[in-house]
Design a protein around this nucleic acid. Structure first.
Lengths: 239, 239
DNA sequence: AATACTTAGTGTACACTGTACGCATTCTTT
DNA sequence: AAAGAATGCGTACAGTGTACACTAAGTATT
């Protein structure tokens, strides 16, 4: 009886992690150069096999930490890819996660530098090809991020603690891939009252310094219970 | 070298399918009574191991067809559950799908009747417990359905080809779990111009018969390209 | 010291649509 | 013929999405 089932226990499971960052200008993704076959020397998403006694989410978090040293960052499961022939080594399913990190607040771990991990502009990567079906995985994660960023306040995860409204707008524009009207964007964000005015200004810029804000997550949670609708999806907020 | 990897190829993958139906009154889900250990005699989601050479999506479709005889119905992957100890037989990941079917247009397959498959009101199931972590899977699928039904015209999948506006409203109410205002709902739906007025009426009802409509998917696709925003998420369309 | 340069920051008018709400209509049943 | 039941329609108001242009506050240059 159990012998029938044994044939099913021959698959491997991997986790691939699309790590997004934002450099103030463009949405970026962290890719690694493969040092082994298959797809030797191609760029790929950071990922690894899930260990026998490891939870899926733990595996995703482990990969992220090994690569960036970061713990407890935003991490979301997106989709599982399981086409029969997608991996030359056997039956391998991969669970795709994406994470949002502050690109300035970490350094790539030494152990991984050997393997060469680099930030790429997402828009550039979309024009190239990646190892395995990683291009498809990336696209799925981008699509999910686009949807999510409009209705959940996760965009802040990509910024530093303190940020300007222009930076925030820039971020939305690079994720959503279209321009937003400055005045309407400010009005909308400020009307939600989920930002803390830090009473500080930018320094070291060659123009009028902008005011700094930070995201007030406690207030956000309170307002959500009162029926706040976080929504940055202006059909015609295009500039 | 390869021996290192062999230890990873010891997992099994299953697909579990949350099959939703709508009886005109309540949202329902199809559950099966387990005929084997573990969880003998408990209610569970229809599911099965994914075969070695089978795509994930194919496996989900196969399970659905074996159980209901239906092909090419709405089927969406939701999430993968992979806690280390979730299955007593070994490492088993399960990929959760949900599907939407017209509850009236099919009959449960004989082969499965032995195992006893029955429709349950979703609201009732949420009060009970299910085999494995199937309760958690069900909740994830319900949550996804709630989100999706507001912005994609998938609700029609649960209805017959011809339906009345009251039936459609009833459907939304049972999925979203709150009442909608009749007049505003009609106005909203009709203003989208995605329904075909069939110029027919209900028959056999003990009151004024309602007009019948059907969903015009071609027109919907055209309108989407022109920027239509399908959205049935009235914050205060509550009655 | 004055000027040019760069980005931050603000307000108003209009149109649209979400929202609330009540009554007449059409068919069946008794 | 009258009562019962669900269908089907319209209007007024408030809120907000949307479009749109100029001044303010700094830095760098001459």
């Amino acid at each position: 009886m159990t012998t029938d089932f044994n044939s099913f226990f021959q698959s491997a499971i991997t986790v691939d992690n699309v790590i997004f960052g934002f450099d103030g200008q463009d949405l970026k993704v962290l890719l690694m150069k493969r040092g082994e076959i298959p797809y030797m020397d191609d760029w790929a998403l950071p990922g690894h096999f899930v260990k026998q006694e490891e939870d899926l989410t733990s595996a995703a978090a482990r990969i992220l930490e090994e690569l960036t040293g970061l713990r407890s960052v935003y991490l979301e499961q997106v989709k599982t890819f399981g086409k029969a022939g997608r991996h030359p080594m056997g039956r391998v399913m991969t669970v795709a996660y994406y994470s949002l990190i502050n690109i300035n607040a970490f350094e790539i771990r030494p152990a991984f530098i050997a393997k060469k991990a680099t930030w790429f502009k997402v828009s550039d990567v979309l024009k190239t090809s990646l190892a395995f079906d990683h291009k498809e995985i990336l696209v799925a994660c981008i699509d999910r991020l686009k949807v999510k960023v409009k209705t959940q306040p996760i965009g802040f995860e990509l910024l530093s603690e303190k940020f300007t409204l222009t930076q925030l707008k820039q971020l939305y524009e690079s994720v959503l891939q279209h321009q937003l009207d400055k005045r309407n964007f400010r009005k909308k964000i400020l009307s939600m009252k989920i930002l803390i005015d830090l009473q500080e200004s930018q320094e070291g810029v060659a123009h009028r310094p902008a005011k700094l804000y930070s995201f007030d997550s406690e207030r956000y949670n309170r307002l959500i219970e009162d029926g706040l609708h976080f929504d940055i999806s202006y059909p015609a907020m295009l500039a």
